[in-house]
Amino acid sequence: MSSLNKSLLIPLGIFIVLVVILAGGFGLKDPHFLPSQLIDQQFPDFALSELNDPSRELTADDMRGQVALVNVWATWCPNCLVEHPELLRISRDEGVPLYGINYNDDPFKARQWLVRHNNPFQFNIVDNKGKLGIELGVYGAPETFIVDANGVIRYRHVGPVSRRTWEETLGPIIELLETNPDGIKG
């Protein structure tokens, strides 16, 4: 009997190990979070028009010179409205340039949206075919990238930016990049 009981403990042990592994896979991680392939890579090349000034052509060079936030947004995206007040606050208080990518959207609606909710962006790249989105590995909106002064992507945030996101991740990373441009990796 006693050896039978002991052997019953083996599957129980395996079961517990599996539960721990699977709990790690299911419970702790957001399945929507995909690690970005583009961290520490140059921001992809593009040539697209500006939302409010369609005659102006924007390229990746327009984002160089300063550490900046690049925000992927659209009028069809409810979470973009959720994060909007925080983006307005960042552009007002934090002195970080904020560039928008208007993603898979109707430029006319997008212009109206910015008038109604105010415009935190220095300029908006019109990506109404989603081509730049694909180059960036974007699969929804909102997404926010930190691009350093040399135009290298340093961080990617998926989902709405909240005050907490700014205080715990975006703010500190930007500060680090501004004081010590080569100091962080990944």
Binding site: L34, P35, S36, Q37, L38, I134, E135, L136, G137, Y139
Partner: peptide, 8 residues
Amino acid sequence: MLARYGDF
């Protein structure tokens, strides 16, 4: 696709 979206 792999370069942009990873193994997923």
